[in-house]
Amino acid sequence: MPKTAARRAAVGAVLALAVVGAVTACEGQPVAAPAAGPVVVAIGDATSVPPPPAEQPVQAQQPPTQAQTVLITFPQTGSGQWMFTPGSDQVAGTQGRLMRYRIALETDIDGVGPAEFAKDIRTILGDPRGWTGGGEWRLQQVGPDDSADFTIYLATPASRDKLCGGTPDSYTSCRNGSNVVLNVARWANAVPNYGAPLALYRQYMVTHETGHRLGHGHELCPGAGKPAPVMEQQTLGLHGCVPNPWPFPDGRSYAGPSGEYNDPIPEGTS
């Protein structure tokens, strides 16, 4: 979707970059997060957002599908301005505590339509193999003006670093307080040698970071050849396990031993 069309499709609201909360849970090592609050600026139309400074975009091409090849482009450093998507009446899950979330995309990202992205997020979080599968949680996407328990951001690498707090790496995604931050570089490219389709990696990154917001810590591979627990840091290494994006892959809870590996974070942002 062209950038201007994407902006018109978004709700007219912009969020200045801020960090919310005091705990960061990333696929990198845990770090302390600075305390700050959000500054919300309402505007009449998302198309009135001033364009970011000119910068050579990073290009990432998704694997071709039967329908088309989608090109996602984004700068290393985005504007820090956000397009929020409308809410939905859909509630995922039938029992448990209701957690409401908002969805925001950084305005510099092209090739990711806000409506399509929001649908992808709802589909992943609404999958019965996901966090609603155990009956502990229900999940609902709400609009930018509604009360929410967390916000899911699709962010450029530098904005990822600001939202996540702590030591920047521009590579991983994270959860920082009520921010669930998805690095667009990972959404576009996944990670090398993951051994699974891009769609499965996206399911993993959304479910993993949302799992942190729901109170889950990192876990270890339970044995060579077994599915990786969704809370294993699969972006940094599988350690003999095979990719798995779900906490309830067969309708039953699946987890590994608590802990994390001292895997290095790759350099670069692609």
Score class of each variant (00 low, 15 high):
193 N>L: 11
107 T>G: 14
113 G>P: 08
137 W>P: 00
215 G>A: 14
165 G>M: 00
183 N>E: 06
179 N>W: 04
4 T>Q: 13
180 V>N: 00
91 V>P: 02
76 Q>L: 15
154 L>W: 05
143 G>R: 08
144 P>F: 03
138 R>V: 01
64 P>K: 12
224 A>I: 14
104 A>L: 03
226 K>H: 04
217 G>T: 13
110 D>Q: 14
152 I>K: 00
197 P>L: 08
136 E>L: 13
155 A>C: 00
3 K>E: 14
161 D>M: 10
261 Y>R: 14
238 L>G: 04
110 D>A: 15
31 V>F: 10
147 S>G: 00
151 T>Y: 09
86 P>T: 08
127 D>N: 10
172 T>R: 08
39 V>Y: 07
38 P>I: 06
200 L>V: 12
92 A>P: 09
165 G>L: 01
202 R>I: 12
204 Y>E: 03
158 A>E: 10
23 V>E: 10
115 A>P: 05
258 S>P: 07
157 P>F: 11
109 I>Y: 05
127 D>G: 08
21 G>E: 05
128 P>Y: 09
118 A>Y: 11
23 V>W: 02
176 N>Q: 15
29 Q>H: 10
163 L>C: 01
25 A>P: 01
18 A>Q: 10
152 I>A: 01
171 Y>V: 00
80 G>T: 03
62 Q>R: 15
78 G>E: 07
218 H>S: 14
60 A>V: 10
110 D>G: 09
186 R>T: 10
5 A>D: 14
104 A>V: 04
141 Q>H: 11
18 A>V: 06
250 D>K: 15
79 S>N: 04
87 G>S: 11
219 E>G: 07
7 R>C: 15
191 V>Q: 00
128 P>E: 13
61 Q>Y: 13
43 I>W: 03
10 A>L: 06
236 L>V: 02
200 L>C: 09
161 D>V: 00
2 P>Y: 06
